[in-house]
Structure formats: C-alpha cells, structure tokens
Nucleic acid binder design. Structure first.
Lengths: 223, 223
DNA sequence: CTTATATTCAAATTATCGTTAGAATGATCG
DNA sequence: CGATCATTCTAACGATAATTTGAATATAAG
C-alpha cells in the first residue's frame, strides 16, 4: 500500500466523525446525550421529530462510535461512548461561536435580558456557592441532575419550580443553569422567578462546558 | 420566532462547521494549514489533487470561516482563522483514534518499527531537550519550522538530512517529529538516520498536538 | 400465547456533494 | 505583452444523505 492510499484511509476515518457531527439533528442529540442517557422516545420528543427519524440519526451516531445503546425493559437507551464526545460537541460549538457571526447574532437574540447573565468567572462562582453566598439551581429534569451536576447545585427542574418555591430563600441571589448556551430552560427559570421578585441570574454553562473547562462535577458515582 | 425554529437555526450553524470537517481532503488541508500558511499550489501538490479541486475544498473551509486567504504576488496564501481550528482538528483525530478501531489498526500498521517510538512523556522530553541530553529535530520543511516549533528543536528537513549529517552529533539520542501522528516524515528520518547508525526515535506529536496539550511552542513572533 | 409497544429495516424520493474536465476570467510578474 | 497562478462557471456522473412511508421484528406485559 502506498503512502497516498494509506493517508486517504486515515483521513477517511476521521471524516466519519466529521460526517456524524455534520447534521443539526445529530448535534442536538449529542447535546442531550451529554446530559445523560436517554431513550429514543425521549430524544425524539425533545427534538420534535418522528421516532423513526430519531432512530436513524442515532444509528448514524452509533456507526461513528459516538454513541451506544442498551435495552432497558421496553425501551432502548442511548448514551455517549465517552466524555470526550461531549468535549467534541463543546469544542465544535465554541469554534462555531468564535467564527460564525450568524451564530453569535442568533445567540444574542436568544438571551432575552442580558442583565440576567451572571458575569462572574467560573472559579469565583464556585467559591460563592461553596460559601453559600449564592444558591445554584440546576433546572434540568431531575434525571439529568442525578447523572452529573455542578458542585453545590441543587436540583430544581423548571417544571417544578412553582410548587417548590418554599425551598428557595428570598434573600440570596439565585444562579440558574441548564444544558448549555443553546438551552432555554434557564431562561424560563429566570423569567419565572424574576417575575416573583427573586434575585435570579443565569449562566450559559452546562455540565459539558464546566467539564471541558477542567472543573470538577458531582457525578452519580461520587455519591 | 418559536423555540424550535430558533434552535434549528443554532444547531444548523454548528453543523456548518461539522460539514466542513466531514471530508477527508478538507481534514488533510486543515492539518497542513495547522503547520502554517500555504499556497493553493503547495496544498494541492501535497494532497496529490487538482488545483481546482483544492480550490473548491479551500472555498468550503473559507465559507465555514475555518480558513481565510490573502494574495501574495502571484500566489494565494491560505491560513487558519485561529489556533482553535487546529485544536478542533486535533480533537477530531483524538476522538476518532479513541473510538474507531479501524483507525487504530491503520495507525499501528503505519508505524514501521514500534521500538522507534520514544516512550517518554512530553514534560520529560522537554526537560531532556533543555538539558541537552537529547537532540530534538523538526523534519518538516523549513518554512513550517519557522512558523512554530517545539522548544529546543532544531530544523532538519528530511529532504536535507543527508547533506547535513555533520550537524548531528553521533553520541546523543536524536528524537524526530513532524506534523503529527498521520505524518510520515519522521518515519523517513528514522529510517534514514537509523540506517546510518544514529540512535534515533520519533514522537507522534506535532506542534498542534503539543499546543493542544497546553505546552509552549517557539513561534515566529517570539524570536 | 397474544397483544401492545418500541424499534429497526427496506424502499423510494428528493436533494446535495465530490470529483473530473473544459473554458473563461482576473491578477500578477517579468 | 506573454506566462503563471488562482478562481469561477459550466456540465456531467456517481455517490451519499435526509426524510417519509410501510413492513417486519423484538421485547415486555397480560
């Protein structure tokens, strides 16, 4: 085998990963799977697509070895093959944010109220949470919180906020986070609690971004 | 605009980056451009493809804002839009190496003589090079060395090795590197110098891998 | 076993992409 | 000006991808 054929083979393999991440739907699936394993049904519902289409895209991710699946009772559960896959998603998004103006503009339009963005650095946020100066709430579904969450964060799914208001102290500032910069759950929480007079801000980080930055998480196995 | 439409827009933008890195040829171009800016002609020659095809792929990279170009006399010179793009290439390759068995097998077959692989860690290599215990040679073309190279490395393009043998001490161990794990230049150097009795090994790192690991480089602006 | 549910498989359609080739256009250098 | 380098446009072919639809399969629950 000559050099050229060999090289073609190598780059072709890497391109398989590239192909897997060249579809918007598959990227969204990756982001969801980065929050923890999920059934095909749940994924399809979240993306508002047909189950069969979701299954096809998941198969593409599986063929590229970015995801794998197991059966759980009636359901089939998918998960990422490693944390490096979540890291790849974060990196792709960061490169896109850095270089594609259209993306930055769309993101700016998403953040309803820029003043609601917490402007502190990650380490500082961590320190404030450790001291109890702020309350960090994870507004994703409880199952995702259980898989992994930011240190000192408490679970407060956005769907349950209204009936669990008593758990939130009114005095301290609340910082909400969800799945990452593309996720709107934290915005909902900000709108909800802001209207009720709470001092609440959001951060753009999700657990993947947090981990990609080299910071520790609290995971299921830790507890 | 409803949530779904907005989200589709966001993921679509990131998918533009994914599409750009879903072609073997474009990945090879990225790797070459990570070594420094290059003309279309040089890139086409390195890939053994037609200039028009190279131009088309470079346009795709340009459209995705991963590369940009400028005119230099008769030539048009392309370069990456940032070091994060080189980092993306490294990450894609790492994920592929980690998860795709076919790639690992192909890579194993590439390394002619595993015994020729330096087994020391990056920091240790750096320390040995600093103390002068080993000689680190950069066997890429001189222009790539000039753009950025490993600390303490000296330029020794593989094409010039035979007529510059006197510059290499016979007593010390020599460590060669080139563009990264997919590059064969260091293997050529190992074969060449090994046959002449030198104690020579190679490492798989190139400057992109070195930088992605958070280690310092010597760049043109440093000097 | 039978039924309901969840998932995959297969086929078909439409669209897009990679590649090659020829010809025309621009820009630059000597 | 003529020569070189790069891009664009066109056309064409084959390959691949996204999506939808209908059939087939596997598993769990009754």
């Amino acid at each position: 085998m000559d050099k050229r054929t060999l090289k073609d083979l190598l780059y072709e393999q890497v391109a398989r990963i590239g192909k897997a991440v060249s579809s918007p739907k598959r990227l969204e699936l990756l982001e969801l799977l980065a929050q923890g394993e999920k059934t095909v049904e749940a994924l399809a519902a979240e993306l508002s697509i047909d189950i069969k289409l979701a299954s096809a895209h998941l198969k593409a991710l599986k063929d590229a070895r970015l995801a794998t699946s197991r059966r759980d009772g009636k359901y089939r559960v998918y998960r990422l093959t490693g944390s490096d896959v979540a890291g790849l998603w974060v990196m792709l998004r960061q490169v896109a944010e850095e270089h594609l103006l259209a993306l930055r503009l769309a993101l700016d339009r998403m953040v309803a109220d820029p003043a609601r963005l917490a402007s502190v650095g990650r380490e500082e946020l961590l320190e404030q949470a450790r001291r109890g100066d702020i309350i960090v709430i994870d507004v994703r579904p409880q199952a995702e919180y259980a898989t992994a969450h930011l240190p000192f964060a408490r679970s407060m799914p956005v769907a349950e906020i209204e009936k669990r208001l008593t758990e939130l102290p009114t005095g301290k500032e609340i910082v909400a986070y969800c799945r990452g910069p593309f996720c709107l759950l934290a915005d909902e929480a900000v709108a909800l609690l802001g209207a009720k007079g709470y001092r609440i801000r959001k951060i753009l980080d999700g657990v993947s971004e947090w981990q990609a930055a080299g910071l520790p998480l609290q995971t299921a196995v830790d507890e």
